[in-house]
Write a protein that binds this DNA or RNA. Structure first.
Lengths: 246, 246
DNA sequence: CGTTCGGTTGATCATCGTCAAGCAGTGTGG
DNA sequence: CCACACTGCTTGACGATGATCAACCGAACG
């Protein structure tokens, strides 16, 4: 069923019924990805890939062998919007086990031609993503390593909270320290030091792919995290129950 | 005349004739901004503000009094696309003297409803901007201060070259060191040191708002600058002659 | 003539990267 | 069952990058 896709797009502005119908009727192949697998390669054209389960990162490999991570995707996110009109300029990688649903490029194209309303919704989604990128930039440019890490953990936790994927101050975050390093623009060694500080100060613990928040108030203050800035994510998608039923 | 607007949007994918006609017919107020003035305030709704002359920056003021600059806008750029569906989440500031043309929010809305083709073009423009943001992020996260500065100068020069706004290895760049600092995530003092190094090494000179490229090859190598990544900017807009005639 | 703004310089210090080494867990092949 | 390799985490020592503080200079401006 395609209810998740509809719910995901609906967050960004209400869809017309005709669009809903077409979205509900379009084919949706489900695919599973193991940790580290490429969900959407660079140069991919959009197929309305929807992350249904798991966490993923948008990243770009750099000529020097390194990479930069641009953001984290949580269930309910469309992860290949960058490939709507041209090839994606970055790739999307599975952090943990991921489940992705996608339609065909052809069906997407047909629906986009038929429904300006769909195009508008996608446009809003893209703008939201661009805003999130700017927030990420603020972190890279203007925050210390400690604040950047705190902010990242806040974001990952908060977004999963909105999806009811967090419980008792815990949530999945299947990232190794090298992932965090490439997300925050730090060395692996320094990431370790920073995570250790957060742990020692009783703020948060990241271990074995599980993030545990020990002092939410302190963590948000340290990271300068403002939940309001994640607004479009605020409306609950309730991935847990939908995934079970869909 | 609105030819500049049409040419600007046309870069991102051809416009239908009906869209061109409407764009040509829509009102376009011209406004002049002095250096440091806010062209588009945060929370602004899009009015299809088109930078016709001058350089501007997208930036966000931070709670701690600082700011982060997300990118530079050159003539021909639409600078308030972020405000298409919701208020802009950042502001746009004039670096030098700027001339901006804008239609009304109402006319824009009407045209967008009438022409899915226009919406598609805007969508492509937004995606292009998002890609540029990711490149900016790579710089912030993964390059040294020297490389970041070199890259920025390359970008500013290259984009103005494509617009025929550069001559003899020179172009305008009316930014003070504090602007560069907030763009690159550095302190003002360090920006000075970095610019001095670039000057002493015979790569580029930035002085009194004029950027002079002394060794393009060396500068691009140091900054890891890849002109190909600015593709949609490549097609010449020829701002110089258009501005004179429009 | 004093003030402000932007650029310049030096001294000092904190942050963070690099190098190197060790350890635990896991999987693999003998 | 044991060596071995491999990956990810941990720690310490050291050094480089870049921030902070402080002061001075020149030009523009009232």
């Amino acid at each position: 069923m395609n209810r998740l896709l509809i719910a995901s797009l609906d967050r960004f502005g209400p869809l017309r019924d005709s669009v809903r119908d077409d979205l509900m009727a379009c084919s949706q192949e489900t695919q599973r990805f193991e940790p580290g697998q490429v969900i959407a390669p660079a140069e991919a054209r959009s197929r309305l890939r929807l992350l249904a389960r798991g966490l993923a990162v948008k990243q770009q490999a750099l000529p020097d062998g390194g990479r930069q991570i641009f953001g984290v995707a949580t269930p309910g996110d469309l992860i290949d919007l960058g490939g709507l009109y041209a090839g994606l300029d970055h790739e999307v990688l599975a952090l943990g086990v991921c489940e992705v649903r996608m339609t065909t490029a052809h069906e997407l194209r047909t629906m986009m031609r038929a429904h300006p309303n769909l195009l508008a919704a996608l446009c809003r989604a893209i703008l939201t993503e661009a805003q999130r990128q700017r927030d990420w930039m603020v972190g890279l440019g203007r925050r210390t390593a400690l604040a950047r890490a705190a902010n990242l953990l806040c974001e990952v936790y908060w977004r999963q909270t909105a999806l009811r994927l967090a419980q008792d101050g815990r949530c999945d975050f299947p990232a190794v320290q090298a992932d965090i390093a490439d997300a925050l623009g730090l060395s692996v060694v320094h990431v370790h030091r920073v995570l250790r500080t957060l742990r020692d100060d009783g703020l948060a613990t990241l271990r074995n792919g599980v993030l545990k928040i020990d002092d939410w108030e302190g963590l948000t203050r340290l990271g300068g995290f403002d939940p309001e800035r994640l607004r479009p994510q605020r409306e609950t998608l309730d991935i847990a129950s939908r995934a079970a039923s869909g």
